[in-house]
Design a protein around this nucleic acid. Structure first.
Lengths: 344, 344
DNA sequence: CGCCGAAATTGAAACGTTTCAGTGTATGCC
DNA sequence: GGCATACACTGAAACGTTTCAATTTCGGCG
């Protein structure tokens, strides 16, 4: 009895036409009080639920925005998703969060699914680095916004964070705390983010009047905790040993911390440590971690707003793509505090 | 040109009827090689993408399964979602992950959205504890499976983990390592999971021939890192001090660890520590954390399978609801190892 | 040579909405 | 009383598929 009632059934029970029922739902002010009451009663009685499917068919597009992230288990993306979700729900759009897990094939599968679903738009952090994903979306005419990646403004909207600035903030903090030998633990070098953060770090070193080799790179092959542990081990073997470490993300920093702790090296007493991303667990580490915060929720919100603007643009050309670059924020915690105190 | 082509356009270009085009897509073996070729060419030429929307309208339900979780940022749910996603994608269903953030109101909103979308089914961890959510789903005839919550088998399918057993495993481990005073740090007592884990712990204590007061409860108001820090502070003030701590989840344990570390109390040398959930960061802690692992991906997979079974049941009564309770697993790491060595 | 059945193809109905040009029906004005 | 006007409501078309009964085509067989 419940899943089956359609607008026609409601119309019959209320003794009106289907058009009137539709108006009661979508334009109540067009209908007389009396009729409206009868129709609402019929709806309640039948347990009628409007079929969004049929509605979409007529409208030509759905009320759903798809979000495709690299890793659902990464707290950063979870926060971005939350931010986007709130904004989109406020305007009545549903959000479908999907996980490409970094796989180009899965990403392509999802893009097909989205096209078939006629989603309203897509928020995406592409796994594919060749630009084919962006190309495909444009070719299919699906509005999209790149998240945590940037794109020349003529090619589409994007929201990213200034990684060069973030790297500079981290290293500037360490330099001004008196550190003169700083290790940079970075994930695979082919990632733009890893390179940008290094570039920023180098800027800060020079700014502080130090030579370039005050910043020593320790390259890790993956950006995770295990790789951080390895990097920590290598760090301990260096001589002279750096007095501070800047990691390209918090997972690496947590790994380094683990190594140092196991070896009895105290943080920040012996070595200061700075991470990147400020994931929830940065504050939860045994030594609360200084980190460069990515404004994750804000990224999500901004991306959602850009997508809405693009969606609402009536003519193709009355929308101007935007490339938004947000500022990160340095959150200083215990892991880098001692040196600061000494320097003061 | 791309987003606009319909099946009729394809039919016109290929010089066949719409029925034939549909057959090429859905039942290729019914169509002659020649025609099939022409139709496929037309599809490619026009960039035709089938409208899942129209398809759903005819079929009466969509190809999407909704998943409603309590907290997307919680790695546990992210893993559950991943497990479910894989299983469902293998049978061609899309997954829409939504986040109720524990809000009953948001949950209700999403349920309405799902009903309007005519989703194929719902995997849900209800924020609502009154059972109204389950009632609503049943009333609307939407197939559902409860995740990480259990339900009498006559009321619906559910997949949960045996929390009493998990608590017992953790405490048994500590008791057999020689601990005689064990603190239990638990979140708000009204949560069934918090109580169950305590019950299991008590079982283990008795089993070990100890008095009930060998397990001392430290109640925290929330299950997060900050609350864990508070609990750690209280723990340090106790006299005589427990030699081991069992926390109702890993976040609490990480908070406790932070307190202990700050106070110079060594883990596991001075105090052994066991968490619950085995989130990714348990292994990443400064002292890798012993924890009771919830088989998150397996929960997701199992729930998806149950939902599929329910969906595929043709008659209402040819499906028997199942209540599946999975076994947790104790993962021993450094945070509880020393005592074990001593006891051996 | 005509008929039959199988294979291939067709064309229209149906799915549940929204939209819109019309049809009534009071109301107010001259 | 006649007429314009606003208002309330109607009914059918359209959205893009799938499905299925009906039709055409064709080779083979009696």
């Amino acid at each position: 009895m419940s899943g089956k009632a359609g607008i026609k059934d409601v119309a019959r029970v209320a003794g009106v036409s289907v058009g009137t029922v539709s108006n009661v739902i979508n334009n109540p002010e067009l209908v007389s009080d009396d009729t409206r009451g009868r129709v609402r009663a019929a709806i309640a009685q039948l347990g009628y639920v409007r079929s969004e499917t049929a509605r979409q068919l007529r409208a030509g597009h759905s009320r759903i925005v798809a979000m495709l992230v690299l890793d659902l288990a990464n707290p950063f993306f979870a926060d971005v998703a939350k931010g986007a979700e709130r904004t989109l729900r406020d305007v009545g759009l549903g959000v479908m969060v999907c996980n490409s897990a970094g796989s180009t094939a899965d990403e392509a599968d999802y893009l097909s699914l989205f096209a078939e679903q006629r989603v309203r738009g897509v928020l995406v952090t592409p796994a594919d680095t060749s630009g084919r994903t962006v190309e495909l979306l444009r070719a299919r005419g699906i509005p999209f916004v790149l998240v945590d990646r940037s794109l020349p403004a003529d090619q589409g909207c994007s929201v990213s964070v200034d990684d060069v600035l973030g790297g500079a903030m981290a290293v500037r903090h360490l330099v001004s705390s008196g550190h003169r030998r700083i290790a940079y633990v970075g994930g695979p070098a082919h990632l733009a983010q890893v390179r940008d953060r290094f570039t920023g770090g180098l800027d800060a070193v020079r700014e502080g009047g130090l030579a370039d080799d005050a910043l020593i790179t320790i390259e890790s092959d993956r950006p995770d905790v295990a790789a951080g542990r390895d990097a920590g081990a290598r760090l301990l073997g260096m001589s002279p040993r750096p007095t501070a470490v800047f990691c390209a993300n918090d997972l690496l920093a947590l790994g380094v911390l683990q190594s140092l702790y196991a070896a009895g090296v105290r943080v920040p007493h012996d070595i200061a440590l700075v991470g990147y991303d400020d994931i929830e667990f940065a504050a939860a580490a045994a030594v609360p971690l200084t980190s460069v915060r990515q404004p994750a929720a804000r990224i999500g919100r901004t991306a959602a707003e850009l997508l809405l603007a693009e969606t609402e643009a009536t003519a193709d050309d009355d929308h101007i793509h935007q490339r938004i670059v947000l500022r990160p924020e340095l959150v200083v915690r215990d892991s880098s505090r001692r040196a600061a105190r000494v320097a003061d």
